[in-house]
């Protein structure tokens, strides 16, 4: 930058501004697309149902991701603490304070297969215990 002439620095500055302008335009287009996509999918509305002062959220198995812990899943899906442990034959000593990812890694299980099994187990429980 030291050896650049005034004209070259001016040109570089103009190029930087044009680049910023293009990035700004792209990000605005991306934002508008995100808003319209979410609006069409109905995800821009708060998903709660108010029962007096308490907010209830509908929770579905589609929201389960591998970074979640079994403890968290037991709570949000109102499962007995040993249900997943017994159903999926989980032998980890840290259960339920272990993530699906960590459990799959430690016991050399396919992560996505384990995730599917967890979702199926929860769906089965919910179907029986509505």
């Amino acid at each position: 930058m030291k050896n650049l002439s005034y004209q070259q620095k001016k040109l570089l500055r103009k190029a930087g501004i044009i680049l910023l302008g293009i990035l700004c335009f792209i990000s605005i287009v991306g934002l508008i697309r995100s808003i319209t996509t979410l609006h069409r999918a109905g995800e821009l509305q708060p998903t709660y149902v108010l029962h007096g002062p308490v907010i209830h959220h509908p929770v579905t198995v589609d929201t389960i991701t591998p970074w979640m812990t079994f403890d968290y899943l037991n709570l949000v899906f109102r499962l007995p603490s040993t249900y997943l442990q017994n159903t999926l034959a989980i032998t980890d000593a840290q259960y339920p304070n272990v993530t699906i990812n960590a459990y799959a890694r430690r016991h050399h299980i396919n992560r996505m297969l384990l995730l599917q099994n967890v979702k199926q187990a929860i769906t089965s429980y919910s179907a029986v215990n509505k």
Partner: peptide, 10 residues
């Protein structure tokens, strides 16, 4: 808190 399980989209 208000958007619950759609928090990732928000």
């Amino acid at each position: 808190y208000l958007f619950g399980d759609t928090w990732q989209a928000i």
